[in-house]
Each structure stands twice: as C-alpha cells, then as structure tokens.
Design a protein around this nucleic acid. Structure first.
Length: 299
DNA sequence: AAAGACAGCAACCGCGTTGTT
DNA sequence: CAACAACGCGGTTGCTGTCTT
C-alpha cells in the first residue's frame, strides 16, 4: 500500500496544494488565523493564512475539527435517541440534525449514523432483511460513476425519503408552526412558554392544525423575540410575514418537513435562544409521541 | 506472526443555492 | 437579468487502526 504522506507529496507536486490529512502545523496556522480574523471568505483564506490548501478544505477542517466549541466522541444515549428521532423525521439532512445537537457536526453525525445507527435501525426494523434497510448507505456496491444505477437504487431503497439537496440557510427563519395570535405574541417572549402555548393549542386542535398567521407588526415582534436586531427586522419583517401567510394552507407537519424550517443558518435562529438550547431543552423531542412517521412525509 | 477483513472517521467531491456584479 | 463567485450540503472515498483467522 502506498504511504499516505508519499501520496500527499505527490499531490503537492501535481497540484501545488496539500491534500489528505492535516498536519499539526496546518491546524495551528488555520486556528490562529481564524482566531485573529474570524471565519468566512474561505476562498481567499488559505492564501492570506499561508496555507497550501483549498478554501473548501480549510472550511471543513475548521467546522468539523478545529472549532473550539466542538464536542468530540462519546455520543450519549440521549444524543443517540435524538439523532434517531430527528433522522426519522428529517431523513439524511445531517446539518439540520446537527443543528439540534450542540457541539456536534453534521459530518460526525453522518458518520455515526453510517457506522453505528443504521445497523441498529436495521436490527430494530421488523423488515430488517428488506432491501430498504439492509444496504449500508456508504458501503453500497453502487459506485459513484454509475450515476444511473445510483439514482435508481437510491429511489428503490428509500421510496419515501425526504429529498436531500444542498440548501444554503442564510435567511432568518422562524419555526412555521408558530401560532401568531395574541396569546402567542406574549408567549413568544419566552421560548419555553411558547412551546407550552403551542402544545396547548395543538392539544385543542390536533398536531396539524393550521394556526392563524400574522400581520407585519406581529412578525416584527416575533423576530424581535427570537433575538433579531432592528435592522434585520426592518429588512425581513414583511418578507417573513408574506412567507407565513403563503404557508397558511399547508398543514403544520408537512410545511415543517418540506421546508426544513426548524432552523436557520445565520442570524437569529432557534439556536439563538441562547444557553437554554441544550439537551435538556430538547427533551421534549424525546418525549413527543406525535412525531410524523416517514410514511407520512410527502416529498 | 502474518494476512485479510472490517470498522471508524477525516477528507474530498460534485452539485445546488444564494449573493454580487 | 444573466453570469459568476462563494458557500454549504449530502454522498462517497480511502486511510488507518483493530479484530479475526
């Protein structure tokens, strides 16, 4: 077998860029640079930092390994259960799942699923020997180059899976199942009260009740309560109000799943509830009995 | 002890979306 | 409004360590 470092050396000669495993020195340089200048502008970062890496590689290394808030290894039972439930709901939308697990990366969760949980899900499944669950997602015999057979096999294996696609989540997003009545506006000041209020309403009307939406002012209040600053609200308030209203006709669960709007990427998002969003605050996910099953997901 | 099989995971790749010019 | 750049995502690869024979 060819030595890994030799391969890197060869690649250096051909491309002028380092590939493969990161060295401690590279880690140090990248960490120091980001600490000094912040994240972003990945394309030009390697040049500015003096790294012989592509921007993509730097971003990945930082997000998946070097970030200071990363929690590594030892996925707890609670976390595992949460991953399973979120995967049942969201499919292979690893970044969304990771967004609900503080300190965990999408790559880590994806790997954990592919190496550990898929086996468990297969074992737990009554149709464990079926085509749907017996094939390892990444050890599949279907090769990348065989695009046609790949797509057909995927479709055959997971007929009801949520379609995954790269989606940049730069918008400020608010959970669509926010009830925008007067009681809600008061409750929204506290996410936990909000949840409680939603639960009450859901109990009254069922989990797929179409909550009344809101006007632009209410949207502004909602955004404020979710931590948005005034500038964001000025720019985005009407937009989100329109989005809320345009979604009125979509049943709650379906809208939530189709758009994946449980979370956003930047700005004020669920994560910005602050310190309250830890595993404890997610416990309700584990307790919930009315999660929609995969069978109910409309793609 | 050696060789092969397997598992875990870091890293890469291609593509879709969003932002900018 | 089209073209391009930048970014982010999920899928996949392949290296390395461990286990089994």
């Amino acid at each position: 077998m060819m030595n890994h470092h030799l391969m890197i050396h060869i690649a250096n000669g051909v491309e002028g860029l380092n590939r493969g495993a990161w060295t401690a020195l590279e880690d140090k340089i990248l960490t120091a640079y980001i600490k000094a200048h912040g994240e972003g502008k990945w394309r030009s970062l390697p040049k500015r930092a003096g790294l012989k890496r592509c921007g993509k590689s730097c971003r990945l290394r930082w997000l998946n390994y070097l970030r200071p808030d990363i929690k590594r290894g030892n996925i707890s039972g609670d976390e595992e259960e949460l991953i399973v439930r979120l995967h049942n709901l969201l499919g292979n939308r690893w970044s969304l799942i990771a967004g609900r697990l503080p300190g965990r990366t999408d790559n880590e969760i994806k790997n954990y699923w592919n190496t550990t949980l898929w086996k468990k899900s297969r074992a737990d499944s009554p149709s464990g020997s079926s085509k749907e669950t017996s094939q390892h997602p990444s050890k599949s015999v279907v090769k990348k180059k065989d695009v046609e057979s790949k797509t057909t096999s995927t479709a055959a294996a997971k007929p009801l899976v949520i379609r995954t696609k790269a989606t940049r989540l730069s918008k400020i997003l608010v959970p669509q199942n926010i009830p925008c009545d007067e009681n809600y506006t008061a409750a929204a000041a506290n996410p936990l009260e909000l949840q409680s209020h939603q639960t009450q309403l859901a109990e009254q009307g069922g989990s797929t009740e179409e909550f009344p939406r809101t006007n632009a002012d209410d949207c502004s209040n909602i955004l404020k309560n979710f931590g948005c600053d005034d500038d964001d609200i000025d720019v985005k308030g009407d937009q989100y109000c329109n989005e809320f209203q345009s979604l009125d006709s979509i049943p709650l669960d379906e809208a939530m799943i189709n758009d994946g709007c449980w979370t956003g990427g930047n700005g004020c998002e669920l994560e910005d509830y602050g310190a309250s969003l830890d595993l404890d605050s997610l416990a309700f996910l584990l307790d919930s009995e009315d999660w929609p099953s995969q069978e109910n997901v409309i793609v």
